[in-house]
Design a protein around this nucleic acid. Structure first.
Length: 593
RNA sequence: GGUCGCAUAGCUCAGCUGGAUAGAGCACCUGCCUUCUAAGCAGGCGGUCCUAGGUUCGAAUCCUAGUGCGAUCACCA
């Protein structure tokens, strides 16, 4: 039983004994620093059940707790707040119970029903950019957090590998590529293909300009440009299974996949399984046909198939074009169903997708419910805000994107510069240094993105580099490294331990233990809210508390061996917790920096 | 226009199911490296919590209306 659970029972007992009344809930909060005490009970809500002066009630309840609860060693009442002082031995015992747990905070898997988390839904016609980076970091972290909260998790992605946009880069390569390949040019495959996507757009625009000059309207020209017509032809050929087109499609997509793999590895994320739209859109069509039979969908005169959602306060939504081809919704229906077929233990899914698609997912989930899938009620759209540049939205075609690989490299370079200035790593080998720069640079980037509430948009200014001081990844990594340094020098005798009775904890020590105590609950909260930001903020608070302890209390120079060993152990637990928390954010921790 | 989201210090952000005098970091100013790593610590400066009503013993937090910004409402994805 946790301290709070114990106190809750006892407060209820107090109210029953003193006022013969039943209290449903008790409201707790951490005692503010300016008052004496550790835990505070708010008296005001009790006034609904017990009539009287809150200060007097507080006094009476406080006295009851003092008399009946061993760990309560004092109390004071300020206005309607009952501040309870907890004995140091309680905190010491708690610390003893967790100090050797390397997985402190993580719950055991206690649920056979798995959750599938989807993140990264790239188009295979251009490289990954900063927007994808937020998506990937968020999804990966939420997956790790769900695992740590006791869930079984599959990490997956959906790859948007078909459609007109893919044909555009294929066509441009065919037309202007002169047989270029990643190996002939030394370019990453995704970059190479992305160049031809841009090339298509340029050529397309100049064709439009030509047609406009010949007297066509802008609108006509956009539809009639030969390049676009050719791309559309190519799509039709693809859908018909034309050998040459399919071969080209396979070849170029493979270049892109190889490039993506490098980027994912670079960022440090992975997947358990992959889904391709080209594999699932047909299944979607099947279920549209089935839904048509069962009356979930209806067909319009032109042959297009729709779902009427007006009763649910939404509009009608198309699920199949009049020419019978699949739309986005069709393949998403197919993908969802395919996943449950492949992994029958999956009982719910999390889709990490930007908030521009809020409406799409609202509709998708509703349609899956209407189709009668039990698991449809456990679908969650992890909707996150866009990453914008000072100049506005990023646009691949116009080249105004922050490339993912470049970004990681820049962060690594910055870490190197700062490290060199500080000059603490003279004895490190080149390899060790490079690994460390990467850890720090990625730590800065990931923390910067994950510490903000997912639903808020991020304004990223490439000119103002990401900080390495204050509330940042490197600051937290630095604290970890500092603790490792102490552990290397500590030389403690495991047999010498602090007695749990008759000890007096330093205020900073107690604050640290209290902060550690919160970790398991923070993980549960973060899982429920799908928010890595809660983990980031918790870790920052823990580290700030530790640095204050470190700077104000001598660890290795403690008065006695018992005290020294305790402080070393406490530091070790803090570093273990930092490591565990950062693991949930996908951030590594260095032994030195 | 309908719907959804956001609005807190000069800037970037916390603020849990409503609770005490709204907190951090950056920037700016003051101190602290002969002591465990100064990517640090201690302190200072800085607020009509977008506005107006309402609910409540009590509102940054909940409700209503409005303002601003963004997204969305495609036989695009």
């Amino acid at each position: 039983m946790t301290l709070q659970e114990t106190l809750e029972l006892q407060v209820k007992a107090a109210i029953k004994a003193l006022f013969q009344s039943e209290l449903k809930t008790v409201e707790f909060q951490a005692t503010r620093k300016e008052f004496a005490g550790d835990v505070t009970v708010v008296v005001f809500p009790m006034l609904r059940v017990v009539k009287g002066n809150p200060a007097v009630i507080g006094e009476q309840v406080g006295q009851y707790l003092l008399d009946n609860v061993e760990v309560v060693k004092g109390f004071n009442v300020v206005k309607g707040f009952l501040n309870i002082e907890i004995s140091d031995s309680y905190y010491l015992e708690f610390f003893q119970s967790i100090k050797d747990k390397s997985n402190f905070g993580f719950a055991d898997q206690r649920d056979d029903t798995a959750i599938m988390v989807e993140y990264s839904s790239p188009n295979t016609n251009k490289p990954l950019h900063l927007g994808h980076v937020r998506n990937v970091l968020l999804g990966y972290s939420v997956a790790e957090i769900l695992k740590a909260s006791g869930k079984k998790v599959y990490k997956t992605q959906i790859i948007n590998d078909r459609g007109i946009h893919i044909c555009k880069s294929m066509l441009a390569w065919q037309r202007f590529g002169n047989g270029e390949t990643p190996s002939s040019t030394g370019l990453k495959g995704d970059k190479l293909v992305g160049n031809y996507y841009v090339k298509f757009d340029q050529e397309y625009k100049s064709e439009i300009a030509k047609l406009v000059a010949q007297g066509q309207s802008e609108e006509e020209a956009k539809k009639n440009a030969p390049l676009l017509l050719e791309a559309q032809q190519m799509l039709i050929k693809w859908e018909a299974g034309d050998e040459d087109v399919v071969a080209l499609w396979k070849k170029m997509n493979q270049w892109v996949y190889d490039g993506f793999d490098v980027t994912y590895k670079n960022i440090g994320v992975d997947f358990d399984t992959y889904y391709y739209e080209s594999d699932t859109y047909l299944l979607g069509k099947e279920f549209v046909a089935e839904g048509l039979n069962s009356g979930v969908f209806f067909k319009k005169e032109d042959g297009s198939v729709w779902c009427d959602l007006t009763d649910d306060g939404l509009d009608e939504k198309i699920v199949l074009r009049s020419d019978g081809t699949a739309v986005y919704m069709t393949q998403d229906i197919g993908t969802a169903i395919q996943r449950i077929k492949d992994y029958p233990d999956v009982g719910g899914m999390v889709y990490t997708v930007g908030n521009e698609q809020d409406y799409h997912f609202k509709v998708l989930f509703l349609i899956l419910k209407k189709l009668g899938f039990e698991w449809a009620k456990n679908l969650f759209h992890l909707s996150y805000g866009m990453v914008d540049l000072p100049s506005g939205k990023m646009k691949s075609r116009e080249g105004t994107v922050v490339d993912a690989d470049d970004l990681v490299q820049e962060m690594t370079d910055t870490a190197e510069e700062i490290s060199n200035e500080l000059g603490k790593l003279e004895d490190y080998s080149t390899d060790e240094k490079q690994t460390l720069y990467k850890t720090i640079g990625l730590g800065a980037l990931k923390y910067y993105i994950l510490k903000v509430d997912p639903k808020k948009r991020i304004l990223f200014d490439p000119k103002e580099s990401i900080d390495f001081q204050g509330n940042t990844g490197p600051f937290i990594q630095y604290t970890y490294a500092r603790i490792q340094s102490i552990l290397r020098k500590a030389n403690v005798d495991e047999n010498v331990t602090l007695s749990t009775v008759d000890v007096s904890l330093h205020d900073k020590e107690k604050q640290l233990i209290k902060q550690l105590e919160l970790f398991p609950e923070v993980i549960q909260n973060a899982a429920e809210q799908h928010s890595p930001a809660l983990i980031a903020n918790y870790t920052y608070d823990l580290v700030k508390e530790f640095n204050s302890f470190y700077q104000n209390v001598s660890i290795l120079g403690a008065d006695s061996d018992e005290e020294k060993n305790f402080r070393v152990g406490l530091s070790k637990s803090v570093s273990q917790t930092i490591k565990n928390a950062f693991q949930l954010l996908g951030i590594g921790v260095p032994e030195r920096m």
